[in-house]
């Protein structure tokens, strides 16, 4: 249903994967839940062919290799390195830089590497507050000492940041985790020798609504805001019209509107469309426009405000995956 985006039409004859040789692939996780590593399996049997056509040089979740092995590789010897996870610790940043040095192309794989992801929501609080919350009052900030004074745990960075904040990123395969169609799109381009010119996001330029099968009515409006557990949504109608905050209008398509099709509002994991900019402000202005009553007029303003006040956790709703990217730096 979803056509490849118009963006993939901009192709260039990348030197990376030479058809005659297997591209050298690295996959690494930084601040990650591990879901991204598992996500490759979602493409099904095709993964077998994919893996047979690449040479894995580094993938901690799959093959045993140490940091020293990576350091030993000559610069630029990896064709493509996929990095998933947020950059949360000093070690995350070091590894990202190391991979950058060893790789021709860096791919931010998944929402955390792309935009900061869910872990970056922690930065609503400062680093010290996070420590205090997690480890209790007596905790002293600073790198914790190692067992025998040699190996020390890496310190946290001041903020959990997307990959592009520490290294140059060439490609993005977005999603939490990336959905199968986009993984296929990426490997299809890589193995077909048709990688688009970087930088490029392997998702649609148009918003999710384009591929959503739900019906949007001419006179759409929101008269109350509800959360998913409070209603059984009508299977046909746009979820926004039913008061569920669906981030579809500000979010890139490419997943075939998987969540809305299943009755769950889109939470925005593919990231904002290129011209939407900050997804929170874009969604808020769309919401402010949709929240209204049949009769309009100033007397309805307090009522409309009341509707918006029912919005629980605006930060988590609007920036569930993108707070690291769009938060204002302190």
């Amino acid at each position: 249903m979803s056509s490849p985006t118009s963006l993939t039409e901009t192709r260039h004859s990348s030197p990376v994967p030479r058809r005659d040789a297997k591209p050298k692939l690295a996959v690494y996780w930084t601040g990650s839940c591990g879901g991204c590593d598992v996500s490759f399996l979602e493409v099904g049997e095709a993964i077998v062919e994919v893996l047979s056509r690449v040479e894995i040089v580094f993938w901690p979740a799959l093959v045993d290799a140490k940091r020293s092995d990576l350091e030993a590789l000559p610069p630029g010897s990896i064709d493509v390195a996929l990095i998933n996870g947020v950059i949360r610790t000093e070690e995350n940043a070091e590894m990202a830089k190391l991979l950058r040095a060893k790789s021709k192309y860096i791919v931010a794989y998944g929402a955390c590497a792309h935009l900061g992801g869910v872990p970056s929501l922690a930065d609503r609080w400062g680093k010290e507050e996070i420590f205090r919350e997690v480890f209790g009052k007596g905790f002293r900030p600073g790198p914790p000492p190692g067992a025998n004074g040699e190996a020390a745990l890496p310190d946290l960075l001041d903020a959990a940041v997307p990959l592009e904040d520490v290294v140059r990123v060439d490609y993005v395969v977005p999603g939490c985790p990336p959905p199968a169609p986009l993984i296929s799109r990426f490997f299809g381009a890589l193995l077909g020798g048709e990688m688009p010119e970087p930088p490029h996001v392997f998702a649609n330029v148009k918003a999710l609504c384009e591929e959503c099968q739900r019906v949007r009515h001419d006179d759409r409006r929101i008269e109350r805001i509800v959360r998913p557990h409070e209603v059984l949504p009508d299977p046909e109608t746009c979820l926004l019209e039913q008061g569920l905050i669906c981030m579809g209008p500000v979010t890139r398509g490419g997943c075939n509107a998987l969540c809305p099709a299943a009755g769950m509002p889109c939470t925005g994991c593919l990231g904002p469309t290129p011209e939407a900019g900050d997804p929170g402000t874009a969604m808020l202005s769309a919401l402010a426009s949709l929240v209204r009553f049949e009769d309009e007029g100033e007397e309805y303003f307090p009522k409309e405000d009341g509707v918006l006040e029912a919005l629980a956790d605006p930060l988590g709703t609007f920036y569930m995956y993108s707070f690291g990217r769009f938060r204002r730096k302190r």
């Binding site: 330029v205 148009k206 999710l208 609504c209 398509g253 469309t273 011209e275």
Partner: peptide
């Protein structure tokens, strides 16, 4: 409208006070 960007989400149409937008 930039047709390459519009997803047809229909947020705009009901807002137009002049009925100028169709989706």
């Amino acid at each position: 409208v930039d047709e390459e960007l519009c997803s047809g989400c229909r947020v705009c149409a009901p807002l137009c006070p002049y009925g100028a937008i169709t989706v």
